[in-house]
């Protein structure tokens, strides 16, 4: 799945400005996660058209990029995420970050991972999980 990433300086109103630009350009967000440090933040956003959203932001002088992430559908119940993470861990893949959201179309939770290697994905699929694409969220 493609994810939109936005580099934001830590200053009041910067995230508001970015989300307003996306809203005005008609981009609806499925999920948003902000990683923050002392000086800056990175907002990771799941949005229908990440390339178009990145262009809309860049046109307004906001730094935006599109990256590959791995989105996995799981059942929304206790213990499910742990099982999935075990599979990734036993195969020695590193997770840079992950976040979860609940999506009505998939009927459960979606876990988004940034992995150090895309080679992890076949083993997730083999283990019986569904790896999602953006179209799956828009269905």
């Amino acid at each position: 799945m493609k994810q939109l990433s936005v580099f934001l300086e830590n200053s009041p109103g910067r995230l508001a400005e970015a989300t307003r630009i996306l809203g005005e350009a008609g981009h609806n967000m499925h999920a948003l996660m902000v990683a923050d440090t002392e000086d800056f933040g990175v907002a990771r956003i799941i949005v229908n058209d990440p390339e178009g959203a990145a262009t809309a932001l860049k046109d307004k002088g906001i730094s935006a990029q599109v990256h590959d992430v791995c989105a996995v559908a799981i059942t929304d119940k206790p213990g499910e995420l742990g099982e999935l993470l075990d599979i990734i861990a036993t195969r020695n893949f590193d997770i840079s970050y992950c976040y979860c959201f609940v999506h009505p179309v998939t009927g459960g939770a979606v876990n988004v991972f940034r992995l150090d290697s895309a080679e992890c994905i076949p083993s997730i699929v083999e283990a019986g999980y569904r790896v999602l694409e953006l179209e799956d969220l828009n269905a």
Partner: peptide
């Protein structure tokens, strides 16, 4: 200023 070329998605690479 961060160069346009940098992948800034991962905090560890920025740090």
């Amino acid at each position: 200023e961060l160069s346009d070329e940098v992948d800034f998605d991962e905090i560890k690479s920025l740090e």
